[in-house]
Design a protein around this nucleic acid. Structure first.
Length: 481
DNA sequence: TGAAATGTTGGGGCG
DNA sequence: ACGCCCCAACATTTC
């Protein structure tokens, strides 16, 4: 059997893997390869932690089927060419990536391999639809979510997921040039990530465990509870989806299968409310594909002239450390630091405070999330930040400025989310927990809260900074015309 | 996937 | 009984 290199990237799974599946179907012997190119590093520190464990899991899964994962360091085009020569491979198969830099790299690699006389095949699996053939009637991309979502639902179910192979052929041992996962030095130098282990299980099995428990326990209440950060109401699949340990198509079919197998009313609506979030992920990936500059620059060009604060270092640092003095924000930022993840509702609240009340450029917030989120994903991250900042696709109009106190009282009414992450405020009753600066002095004292001593006073006046943000927006509107 | 300002309505207290 | 005011509750407009 002729070998084919299966180039793993952001598809660290064996099931629903078209590259692997097609190589086997065409009678190739699969040689699984992962290439770490430190120059084209597209992961933050938390993502690196995840990648380390996900690669370990993939390698073990491959070994269980009789194969292994060859792990190489260096330039992918060069390595794939030399590897094909060494192994006598006649083909290279992979599943597509959609980020601008990855698209460019893959295009070059494909050309180099074809020039070397190899068969190269790439497949779509990370998205529900290929961005280039999912658009409006005139084939231009959707820029508004609701029509995108309607078209997605109308376009029929995504392709049916493929099964994992039952067995694979062994690869050469030792494999030429292969290193261990440890040798990739992915684990961050400072060990802030200790809290990650009991919350996350990177790898394909971990992804399915999350999906299973979400379908068994939470999806039925998803429409009701999804915005309440204290509850385990969301799927937490985001990092698994990012690394391709599970595909959106698998999630889609599993959720609909759950909805039709349950006899209770409202299950289809519940499943669709969840899949709508999967569609937001899809939308943001399509947007980044069609507008590749939006990872760095605002989609709405008026915002190039936005009068951001220039001396924002102190504010940014307080925000990063969860020391803004605004409880729902600080709770979110500490959840992020401790667990590598933050509830989506709280992400919006934190992002709104940074970009609107503090007038810090959204790219700074995006950069911090990029480094600290285990699910850091270029498309989702850029899209989400631009959405909140008001400069993105189908964005919240600029004047929609969150009031973090009102948001806290609405979505964390009893304050249990805040108390979980800010134990120093534990003793405050729900009435004051979202605005300790307004609490009566004697109440603060009996709760053991000393403002500016063990919990900061709010670093911004919410009312005044709101007005200031609206004035900044007026300035931008005038400049354009 | 907002919040604040402003407008409207209707019940109840009260002279 | 009536008009007046207050204000909560809700709706609409504006940022």
């Amino acid at each position: 059997m002729t070998p084919a290199l299966i180039w793993f990237r952001r598809d660290l799974r064996l099931s629903d893997n078209p590259a692997l599946h097609n190589a086997l179907e065409r009678g190739y012997r699969a040689v699984p390869v992962y290439i770490h190119d430190p120059r084209s590093q597209a992961t933050g520190a938390a993502g690196d932690w995840w990648l380390h464990h996900s690669l370990t899991a993939l390698r073990e899964d491959l070994q269980r089927l009789g194969s292994d994962l060859a792990i190489l360091k260096g330039d992918s085009a060069t390595l794939l060419c030399s590897l094909a020569r060494q192994t006598g491979a006649g083909a290279v198969f992979w599943n597509r990536r959609y980020e601008p830099a990855a698209v460019a790299e893959d295009k070059n690699t494909k050309q180099a391999l074809r020039d070397a006389g190899l068969e190269v095949r790439s497949f779509g699996a990370a998205l529900l639809r290929e961005p280039w053939d999912f658009g409006k009637a005139d084939n231009s991309p959707y820029r508004v979510f609701t029509p995108f979502w309607k078209a997605l639902q109308k376009s029929g179910p995504p392709r049916h997921p493929l099964r994992a192979p039952r067995a694979l052929s062994p690869i050469a041992k030792p494999f030429p040039g292969s290193v261990s996962v440890e040798e990739l030095n992915l684990l961050p130098v400072i060990d802030w990530y200790r809290g990650f282990h009991d919350r996350w299980k990177p790898g394909e099995a971990g992804a399915w465990a999350k999906l299973r428990s979400f379908l068994d326990n939470a999806v039925k209440d998803y429409p009701e509870d999804r915005d309440r950060p204290a509850l385990p109401a969301t799927s937490r699949l985001s990092p698994h989806l990012h690394f391709g340990e599970i595909t959106p198509s698998q999630v889609w079919h599993s959720a609909l299968a759950w909805a039709t197998s349950e006899s209770e009313a409202g299950t289809v609506a519940a499943a669709e409310s969840f899949l709508r979030q999967i569609a937001w992920r899809e939308f943001s990936h399509h947007m980044l594909f069609h507008f590749p500059h939006t990872a760095e620059e605002p989609l709405d060009t008026r915002y190039r002239a936005f009068p951001w604060e220039t001396d924002y270092r102190g504010a940014l640092e307080a925000w990063q450390k969860g020391e803004t003095g605004i409880p729902i924000v600080d709770a979110g930022m500490r959840e992020l630091w401790t667990s590598g993840w933050m509830h989506n509702r709280v992400r919006m609240i934190c992002a709104s405070l940074l970009t609107k009340n503090l007038l810090v450029p959204w790219q700074q917030g995006a950069r911090w999330f990029w480094d600290t989120l285990v699910d850091a994903d270029l498309a989702n991250n850029s899209f989400g930040w631009q959405w909140t900042a008001g400069c993105g696709a189908d964005a919240a109009p600029y004047f929609r400025i969150f009031n973090p106190v009102a948001q806290g009282e609405r979505f964390d009414a009893d304050g249990s989310y805040v108390r979980r992450w800010l134990p120093e405020l534990k003793g405050l009753p729900a009435k004051w927990i979202h605005k300790p600066w307004e609490a009566p002095e004697e109440l603060l004292t009996s709760a053991g809260v000393i403002l500016d001593k063990n919990y900061p006073r709010a670093i911004v006046d919410l009312k005044r900074s709101r007005t200031r943000a609206l004035e900044a927006w007026e300035q931008v509107k005038r400049q354009r015309v």
